[in-house]
Computed example of a mutant assay.
Amino acid sequence: MSTPKWRQLADDLAQQIRSGALAEGEALPQIRELTASGAGSTTTVQAAYRALETEGLVRIVRGRGTYVRRQRSRVIRESQARYQWEKDRALLPEDERRATGVTERETGLDTPALAFQATYEVVAAPPEIADRFGVALGSQMLHRHYRTSSRDESAPIGLIDSWLVYEVAARNPALLDSGREPWPGGTAHQLRTVGIEIGQIDDLIGARPPTADETKLLDLLPGTAVLVLHKFSYSVDGPLAEYSEAVLPGDRHQFLYRVPLERWPSV
């Protein structure tokens, strides 16, 4: 089956963008210019430009034109290896924990290339959170908001909200201070300071359209979905120690799962 002409045009322009022949912020040719040069009909060029926008390579500005978009840093999240790495790292000396974190590991960016933002608030547990932690409705919770981005980009890599039972976090007053973020060793080490060892983590992942606020904050193109990761961290004794919800741009994040399977018994 032959490749449609719009796809051929889109692939050619994509190659020019990825090679740098078309630079960030540069305007692509007007549709009438491409049609006049024989690249295809107006419908063909429009389809090619829409495909490039869907693939995150260009931004179409109505009434102005189509422009090469800044290429966003990508993240491959390998949850099994990530969580064991974080847990092992919680046992290391502070200078080793401070040297690098899981975001650096997954993005390939050095710590100075990342901008970290964290805000904390003490709130009454809403029904869903109270039910998950098995605490009374209205119990005090430490609600933490994390936004991490490359310093070369304005949009964060994701939007993360984390919950801890306040009276548990308060065993170490340092855990109540957002100014100590990014915390060397992350949540696994924070919990270790209050005597909690994580024994199991459950990930529940779904996809949905972004809200208007998420579209703006994450700088999403039309049609881009977000992945929503619900992470449940259980202590070795069983209770839920931390719950977080991460809203991740679908055009930036991939999840890689390696699942070893047991061998069949010899016949």
Rank of each mutant, 00 (worst) to 15 (best):
A10S: 10
V122S: 10
Y234L: 10
R97F: 04
E167N: 14
Q15S: 14
I76M: 13
A115P: 03
V194G: 08
M141W: 02
R89N: 09
T107Q: 02
A155D: 04
R263I: 05
P184C: 07
L22P: 01
H230I: 07
V122E: 05
G40V: 02
Y166K: 03
M141C: 07
L217F: 03
P209M: 13
S79A: 14
D11E: 15
Q80L: 08
L22T: 01
I157H: 12
G63A: 10
L34Q: 03
D161W: 02
D177N: 15
G206H: 08
S233Q: 11
Q71V: 06
R74N: 07
G158P: 00
I157G: 02
A36E: 13
E197T: 15
I60C: 14
L240H: 08
R147P: 00
L256G: 04
V259W: 12
G238P: 00
P127M: 07
T111L: 14
T215E: 15
F232C: 00
A81F: 09
V259P: 03
R18H: 11
Y83T: 05
G65H: 04
R89W: 08
S244A: 12
T103M: 11
R62C: 09
R64H: 14
R132N: 11
P4R: 12
P127V: 04
T42W: 09
Q16V: 05
V61P: 00
E78C: 06
R32Y: 12
Y49W: 03
V259R: 14
A39G: 05
A99C: 04
L256V: 15
G101Y: 05
A155F: 08
P210T: 09
G199Y: 11
T103A: 08
L220P: 01
T224M: 07
E104W: 04
S2H: 13
I60T: 14
N172D: 11
E167R: 12
E53Q: 15
G158T: 06
M1Q: 15
M1H: 15
T42G: 11
A27E: 14
Q71E: 14
Y234K: 06
S79N: 12
T224E: 07
G185V: 06
V259L: 15
R180I: 00
G238F: 11
R64P: 02
H253G: 00
V194C: 02
P156G: 02
R32G: 07
R105A: 09
P156L: 00
E78I: 05
H189G: 02
P249T: 03
A212P: 04
R62Q: 15
T148L: 06
T119Q: 01
E181D: 15
D177A: 10
P4E: 12
R144G: 03
R97N: 06
L256T: 13
E106T: 10
P265T: 11
T103G: 07
G108R: 09
Q71D: 13
E26M: 14
Y49T: 04
I157L: 13
R64N: 10
Q190F: 01
L13H: 05
A99G: 01
V68W: 00
V247D: 00
Q140T: 03
R74H: 09
V259C: 12
S79E: 13
E55K: 13
I17T: 10
V267D: 14
R132V: 01
G20E: 09
T215V: 15
Y146G: 00
